[in-house]
Design a protein around this nucleic acid. Structure first.
Length: 476
DNA sequence: ATGTTC
């Protein structure tokens, strides 16, 4: 994008002053290189979001942003229900509550390398991955509703995990206010045998080594030391979330005129928070959040089983589990008063600073772990929430590297086999059901995650704690 | 992201 579209507030903050139907400014956090490389669509979509009723303060955009359905991926927008604020299915994204979970292993890099190949093979055998993959679990309609209401807590109660896991998951592992009855039979049917599956696209399960520490006290609080290994699971609510998103987008688009909402783009379909449709979506979306939390919990248990078999000394415990596709009710200070807002984060991670009451006591002093999944083979980052992010972006940060190239173009640029061989030569084992998927996810199809994270830090959204590098990647 | 185009 051309820099003259923006008022430059700092080297890392670019404002789109309100014009036309914009109710608030747009604010993009990025360095000059990242913002120049962003598609012009990000600008258009940010302007459009800023036009929506009841939006508070600004439409924010994270440094990893790229264009998405209606809202940019990497967008944060908060709405006030008392000022006509809306909830938008496109503002959450199709993969409701897609997120990242990070587990300690209690093992070193050398422990992993000793069994690297059998571990990769066994994880690939035991973790269902790919489009339409199904798991070993079948849910009848009663259990489906229990899962949609109970999230990871439901999973732990059924034996998938340990009660201690729950305190390191957002919302204690169970999103309140879910309405399983608001989820269609079709969505439930699609999910019936998809629990405990990774999915496809950018979803993955990685074994990673801690290769750099930037913030010693926070790393100590997070239990991260150089040479230690962690596991990151990146996945979401599978077919159920997608079905909910599809159905509500359609309904919101049809109902917009009845709600007196003029949509600058049909893809921005939304409904007033205080409308029956808005409430119905929120109930279904929260059920989708529980589905994703339960899914990551079951996957955790599958990974634990593999480790118990090959590395019995391992002790898999949660660092944290945080979603990056949600709409959540949060209290934020705006113009000197506390307001209850509906914060959409689409491809953006919640990043509560130190002292936030929603953080578990063991993490309260350091701030929330912010889990940033990089592209395959390039490494990922663990950051922590900071106080400044509250004012800057309702306590949010980036979520990953962000695509730099379309899937289509990536497919025609690389061969999956070559990508796998190149990474193997660097000691990284990839296992995937599809060569095409690997080509689409080639490291160079993404932005430089290091540059994204540095921009997020320089902008004041979060602080770097550690960098991790992959040893094994099971790719959806 | 996605029973990869109801």
């Amino acid at each position: 994008m051309e820099l003259d579209l923006f008022a430059r507030r700092s080297d890392y903050q670019w404002e789109i002053p309100p014009h036309g139907a914009m109710r608030v400014p747009g604010v993009i956090y990025a360095d000059e290189t990242l913002i120049r490389a962003m598609d012009h669509k990000v600008y258009e979509q940010t302007v459009n979001v800023a036009c929506l009723p009841g939006i508070v303060r600004a439409a924010y955009v994270m440094p990893d942003a790229h264009w998405g359905y209606g809202f940019p991926i990497g967008g944060v927008a908060a709405f006030d229900p008392d000022e006509g604020g809306v909830v938008s299915a496109g503002g959450v994204g199709f993969d409701i509550s897609c997120g990242v979970r990070c587990l300690h292993t209690g093992l070193t890099r050398d422990d992993i390398l000793r069994v690297q190949k059998p571990l990769a093979d066994r994880l690939f055998q035991c973790i269902p991955a790919g489009v339409g993959s199904s798991g070993a679990i079948r849910l009848d309609s009663q259990e489906m509703d229990a899962m949609l209401a109970g999230g990871a807590k439901w999973a732990v109660e059924r034996g998938w995990g340990e009660p201690a896991d729950l305190e390191r998951i957002e919302e204690g592992g169970r999103m309140k206010g879910a309405r399983p009855a608001a989820v269609s039979q079709q969505a439930k049917k699609r999910q019936r045998d998809e629990m405990g599956t990774l999915g496809s696209g950018n979803h993955y399960l990685e074994i990673q080594e801690v290769v750099a520490i930037y913030d010693r006290p926070a790393a100590a609080a997070f239990g991260l030391i150089e040479g230690a290994t962690v596991i990151m699971v990146h996945c979401g609510s599978r077919g159920l979330g997608h079905q909910i998103g599809t159905e509500f987008l359609k309904q919101m688009a049809i109902a917009a005129a009845d709600h007196g909402i003029i949509l600058p783009d049909r893809e921005l379909a939304c409904a007033p928070i205080q409308s029956p449709l808005g409430q119905e979506y929120l109930g279904a979306m929260r059920a989708g959040i529980n589905c994703a939390l339960a899914n990551r919990q079951i996957l955790t248990q599958l990974v634990r089983q593999v480790f118990a078999e090959l590395l019995p000394a391992a002790r898999l415990s949660l660092l944290y589990d945080v979603s990056h596709n949600t709409c959540k009710v949060e209290t934020h200070r705006v113009d000197g008063r506390m307001r209850e807002l509906y914060v959409h984060r689409k491809g953006a991670t919640r990043a509560f600073g130190p002292g936030h009451p929603d953080l578990p006591e063991t993490l309260r002093a350091s701030g929330q772990p912010v889990l940033i999944g990089g592209s395959m083979g390039t490494g990922s980052y663990i950051l922590r929430g900071v106080a400044e992010s509250e004012e800057l972006a309702f306590a949010s940060a980036c979520h990953g590297a962000g695509r730099a190239m379309s899937r289509h173009r990536a497919q025609h640029t690389w061969h999956g086999r070559q990508v796998i061989d190149d990474l193997a030569a660097r000691g990284i084992l990839i296992r995937s059901p599809t060569q095409r998927g690997v080509a689409e996810e080639a490291p160079d199809a993404y932005k430089d995650v290091g540059a994204v994270v540095d921009a997020a830090e320089a902008a004041g959204l979060a602080r770097k704690v550690a960098r991790v590098a992959p040893l094994i990647c099971v790719k959806g």
